[in-house]
Amino acid sequence: MKKILYILAMGVLVGAGSSCKKIDNYDAPNVTLTGSVVDATTGAGIQTEQGSGTRIKLLEISYTANPTPFYISSMQDGTFTNTKLFAGTNVISAEGPFVPMVQTDDAGKTIVDESQTVQIKNTTTVTFKVHPLLRVEWVGTPTFNADGTITAQVKFTRGTDDPNFQQDISDVYLFVNATKYVGNNNYDNRYSQQITYDGSAGNAAAGTTITITTKGGPMPGKRDYFIRVGARTNYGLKYYNYTDVKTVAAP
């Protein structure tokens, strides 16, 4: 009796082990897509926050006309890289704190389409030239004050002439963090300072030099702080436009 059981079990095992010859022998994804999102006027990378800022939208149209979008998050300086993609034809565009690359009118007709159709293979590089909603620039160098706070001066200007994307400016934010990853998704809320504007009050501030000082009293010394200023308008998802990250050393 036991012998029969063993034979049966053996048979099942052998059967299970030898069937399913067809293994998944499709090559692992090994194609690299890299590139950057830059200001069409100045050529500088569009500063953003990592994860919740600029993202690259890929529509892989090799197999269907209506694919589910695939997104790649951009890095803080507006560059992006993904080294694990499949080769194929993609319609690529970017979403972020700039005039949308694909715009539709109220009837759903596409009126602007700056997305690029690209054959992705080996290492493919794509550059997007866009118009930021706001340009935020440092004025001078941020300073560490005697009372232990940091003061920064910035200036923001409109990055586009299109009145459809010149909504009211809602706020300017001095973000402070202990690492170089700093922005609205990642900041020390004890020190970071926000200036908000009601209604259209902020529009007059465009082009002027704005001085912001950190809040919350003196910051602990003997270390570096990473600071960055963001400003945004009431457009859409209210992305921030940023300056680049500067390091301030606390004595």
Partner: peptide, 12 residues
């Protein structure tokens, strides 16, 4: 509202 999403047939 300030958010817009329009599909290809013009439905907002």
């Amino acid at each position: 509202n300030t958010t817009t999403l329009v599909d290809k047939d013009g439905n907002r």
